[in-house]
Nucleic acid binder design. Sequence first.
DNA 1: ATACAAAAAAATTTCGAAATTCTTGACTTT
DNA 2: AAAGTCAAGAATTTCGAAATTTTTTTGTAT
Lengths: 244, 244
Amino acid sequence: MTNATAEIAPGRKTEAKTLAAQVYEKLREDIVAGHLEPGSKLKLEQLLSKYSVGMSPLREALSRLVGDMLVTSQGQRGFRVAPLSLTELEDIARTRSFLETEALSLSVQKGDEEWLETVEQSYRALAQNEEELDASNGEPPSDLVSRWEESNRQFHAALLSACGSVWLLRLNSILNQQMERYRRLSLRHSRGHRDIAGEHYAIYKAVKDRKILKACELIEQHLDLTTEEVRRALLQNEEEAAEA
Amino acid sequence: MTNATAEIAPGRKTEAKTLAAQVYEKLREDIVAGHLEPGSKLKLEQLLSKYSVGMSPLREALSRLVGDMLVTSQGQRGFRVAPLSLTELEDIARTRSFLETEALSLSVQKGDEEWLETVEQSYRALAQNEEELDASNGEPPSDLVSRWEESNRQFHAALLSACGSVWLLRLNSILNQQMERYRRLSLRHSRGHRDIAGEHYAIYKAVKDRKILKACELIEQHLDLTTEEVRRALLQNEEEAAEA
DNA sequence: ATACAAAAAAATTTCGAAATTCTTGACTTT
DNA sequence: AAAGTCAAGAATTTCGAAATTTTTTTGTAT
């Protein structure tokens, strides 16, 4: 065990990472990113070398991913990446929309001025990112896209952060993680024009003005548009697979 | 490995159970039942002998329970049973109510005659159980209580089964599991009189008559009354602990 | 008595091999 | 050709010991 370093030991502010926790994180990222094929058998011997880890930490990580619903296990037959399907996409999208609008509604009702300040800051960071994306010609550089994704994630988290329900946020984040698998899968397709920046601004404005119904309506539309993009891409995927 | 038996091998209709899966199930039950103290450190050496299992299957089971949010882990310092708190109880109760009323609403809208037949059967089994409970003098035998709990669970599952959302049911069952920990903790206290059978009948009747709003209102009240019982018992627990 | 350092003991995590189960391919029977 | 049986190889699961980390105890200095 080599990962508890000298800088960490005094005061122990940062969590020591076991090998199992490290490989869990890598596996989780790879599943969400689609690098491990949905539905595919996870061959343990291959994963041992791919992730430079032993059997016990690997099985621990996979077991935890079973609890996260990103992996399925079958006794004596090992583990598989959880499958994806259009039916499930619709279910996740509806359920996420249902939860996220509730969380937003509660947030707008309960959030104090400090919260609103946080929302404003995250909106500004996002808006700046979106301007840079707009200004980039052709295909934007991947680090710019990554930064946009992070600031988008933070804007949405800030919006919901005053909802007062740890569990609502947990469940919503489970659904977001599932949804992200679909979104990543859809990135291989060019998308139609969509004014995401405008959508974000409208949501931010409604929240700033404390218009609960409006905000919920807008975020629902925002989520629905994302789902529509993903759905279209997945359908294209299926058509291309049928032609091959 | 001894648990794949000869009866199972032909056709393989039933899942082969690894040791890890078996100890996972036992640990899960013991945590939900409160046999393992909320917040307590899970000492691996003790668990090895308690559950007659080796270190690898044990750690796999615990890792999965981390994913289930019944156990917390801290790198290099092992695992703990997830804590309970009054604040969390309220959060879980609200969130569960929110999800379960939605699932019921969808179920009543979408459920066909076959579904309604299933609901009716489960209601009849529950009602019979409740009559037997009523007829038993003093403290009812524990097998009767267990049977009531199972038929109660099945009634609720039947009610929601036509909602058309795998994910809504999954999330709701996560919350039910969490809530069950609190309910079990509250069983050590006698409870005030409550007409649970009447509540079940009213819900069943509203569902049978396809009165969505009424059904949702009733199930919300039903869940709230359960929460109130649990809350009162937990407050009593705290008072008793303060006196000791 | 308190604080610090070092050693010992306990606990946790991981390793690598052994045990067990599943899958595949070869062969035989119908 | 299809179905069944068996053995070999591959994959999965578990074991028990070793390695590592944390906690506790002991000893020393102030």
